[in-house]
């Protein structure tokens, strides 16, 4: 039995009356690269934000490294590193200052901050930019800095929302290498992406979510069987088949909502 490092059970979340998650269940195991896939508005970013503590769920339970994040909202965060979809960094700090700040607020000892900071600055080829203000750096460089900051405390779980956007092919290759290295060391990578070909090659397992529900999860073989698209089908074909199928209950639900009125469905588990 593999160790579960992230576990979501019946998670619900609504924004201004719009149901973003509808009883989402998800399991991520130790030492894997896990991909969260889904069409626009499926609830990927909401799921990630709940896991990292930027959003509060309305109902359900989330466990990260055996911490119930509702019971212990801070302790578990020392085991996670996070990179958001749109990276915003303090423009007024230099690259070096930002990494020091990131390390300090995560309780990393000074020596380790220095060591890891130098390592990632060299790795991402940002040596000549270490004393430059973040303001002056390109979008790709900012993304690399955000990844370096998420790794400064050597977290067990790295959570990234669309990590490859704005990064050049060489940078993408380097990041994938980092992911593979970390997985070898027993760390976990959790990514959300629209890039299905990348997910197919990179991820050990994926979950496809649609309208706030987990439509299917597993490795490519499992998904091929589940979607019945054939054993040579690509992840893209599987994804399209499963998300198309997942639309049907929603259409039925919309019809039911019309019949019963919107209030009749609030909080109902579908």
């Amino acid at each position: 039995m593999m160790d579960r490092v992230i576990e979501l059970l019946d998670v619900w979340k609504a924004y201004d009356g719009v149901q973003a998650l509808r009883g989402l269940n998800l399991e991520v195991y130790k030492g894997e690269i896990f991909g969260l896939l889904g069409p626009n508005g499926a609830g990927k970013t909401t799921t990630i934000k709940i896991i990292v503590g930027l959003l509060k769920m309305d109902r359900g339970s989330v466990r990260v490294n055996n911490f119930d994040i509702f019971e212990e909202p801070y302790g578990y965060k020392k085991f996670i590193g996070y990179v958001p979809e749109s990276v915003s960094l303090p423009d007024y700090l230099t690259l070096e200052e930002f990494l020091i700040y990131s390390g300090k607020i995560r309780g990393v000892p000074n020596e380790q901050i220095r060591e890891r900071m130098n390592h990632y600055i060299n790795l991402f080829e940002l040596t000549d930019k270490r004393r430059a203000l973040i303001l002056s750096l390109s979008r790709g460089m900012r993304q690399k800095i955000a990844i370096a900051a998420a790794l400064i405390h050597d977290p067990d779980i790295l959570i990234l929302d669309e990590p490859f956007i704005g990064i050049d092919p060489a940078g993408q290759h380097m990041i994938k290498e980092i992911f593979n290295e970390r997985v070898k060391d027993g760390k976990t990578i959790f990514i959300s992406t629209h890039m299905l070909d990348t997910a197919e090659r990179l991820c050990n397992r994926v979950a496809i979510i649609h309208n706030g529900q987990n439509v299917a999860s597993g490795d490519l073989k499992n998904l091929q069987q589940l979607s019945e698209v054939g054993e040579n089908a690509t992840l893209e074909e599987v994804f399209l088949k499963l998300t198309e199928e997942a639309k049907e209950p929603i259409i039925e639900e919309t019809a039911e909502r019309k019949r019963r009125g919107f209030l009749g469905l609030i909080g109902r588990k579908i």
Binding site: L54, K77, Y82, P90, S102, G107
Partner: peptide
């Protein structure tokens, strides 16, 4: 104005 969009950094760390 400065920290409007940067607040995610401390909020996703273990810092209280």
């Amino acid at each position: 104005f400065s920290e409007f969009e940067n607040i995610w950094i401390p909020l996703t760390s273990c810092l209280d």
